[in-house]
């Protein structure tokens, strides 16, 4: 026993190293288990406030660009107001029409910390559970998908960017409704890879890609990007295509968090079916 202690004390440098390294690796491995980084730490109080502080300084540098984007977006939204439609039929009463019940709501939020250079990228938003954001909600901009909310605190939420190795989005070709899987291979933040499109489908550069709406995370029909290169990799029997992403991840400022009001109903139904209920 005494010899054992003497041994440990003699080589304490090595044992202390082993202990600290084990603790650190355990942290890493534990979070790898959770597919979606349940403890993305920037949602916590200290780091969240720190990022907000630094964002409040850097905000000023992008005011010009953000203003232009907002006015473009305003113009587009104006086209959809009732004032911009001429009412031709005076017989139809449309106030609170029960034919249309609202399914999606959008919560506007600002990106206060973001990265595109790592293999797994995360971002932090300045809104949290207080504003109605919950984990697993989708995040989009007015042109393109951004990511999925991983974790929320009262005032902040952290988002797994699409630029992450565990992220896969179900995408649909707008012209013929074929479904494929979109993922990021880690090279360029402006490009993604589309796979699992069968080879009999006509697929050419320039085709438009939108979200499929099969998951409850993103609404259907959100613009993702356009196909830029098509190939069949050796030994595959499906297309692999390079996609130019519509979202510019490097200049994200304002994003919309998608709230699906029928999420619970849909999931309940699917769980019921998969459990074998009729």
């Amino acid at each position: 026993m005494r010899n054992l202690f003497r041994f440990i004390i003699r080589y304490y440098f090595f044992f202390l190293f082993l202990l600290l390294e084990t603790v650190a690796i355990l942290f890493v491995v534990q979070h790898q288990h959770y597919q979606r980084a349940r403890f993305a730490s920037s949602a916590n109080f200290v780091a969240g406030n720190f990022h907000r502080m630094s964002s409040s300084i850097t905000d000023y540098f992008s005011l010009r660009r953000v203003n232009r984007q907002l006015s473009e977006e305003n113009a587009r939204l104006l086209e959809f107001t009732t004032e911009s439609f001429l009412k031709t039929d005076r017989q139809v009463f449309t106030y609170r029409d029960t034919l249309y019940s609202r399914r999606f709501r959008y919560i506007n939020a600002e990106v206060i910390s973001n990265s595109v250079s790592r293999r797994d990228n995360y971002m932090t938003l300045n809104k949290g559970s207080k504003h109605g954001i919950k984990p697993d909600m989708g995040v989009i901009t007015f042109n393109g998908v951004v990511g999925i909310v991983a974790n929320v605190s009262e005032n902040f939420s952290s988002v797994i960017s699409f630029l992450h190795k565990d992220m896969q989005i179900s995408a649909r070709l707008q012209k013929n409704d074929h479904i494929g899987t979109l993922l990021w291979e880690g090279n360029d933040y402006r490009k993604a890879t589309l796979t699992y499109i069968p080879t009999h489908v006509e697929l050419i550069p320039g085709d438009t890609l939108v979200t499929s709406g099969f998951s409850v995370i993103f609404p259907p029909g959100i613009f993702i990007g356009t196909i830029s290169e098509v190939e069949i990799r050796l030994g595959d029997n499906y297309f692999t295509a390079e996609v130019d992403l519509a979202t510019d991840f490097n200049s994200l400022k304002f994003v919309q968090v998608v709230q699906d009001l029928m999420n619970e109903e849909l999931q309940q139904l699917e769980v019921q079916t998969q459990a074998g209920g009729r």
Partner: peptide, 30 residues
């Protein structure tokens, strides 16, 4: 070792990387 571990953890806290910087910095110190 301990100050390197502390440095790594501090960087981890601010950049959403759980334990990676701590592990790498402790190895460097060793």
């Amino acid at each position: 070792l301990l100050s390197s571990f502390g440095m790594g953890l501090t960087i981890d806290l601010f950049s959403d990387t759980q334990g990676m910087h701590a592990a790498a910095t402790v190895l460097l110190a060793f």
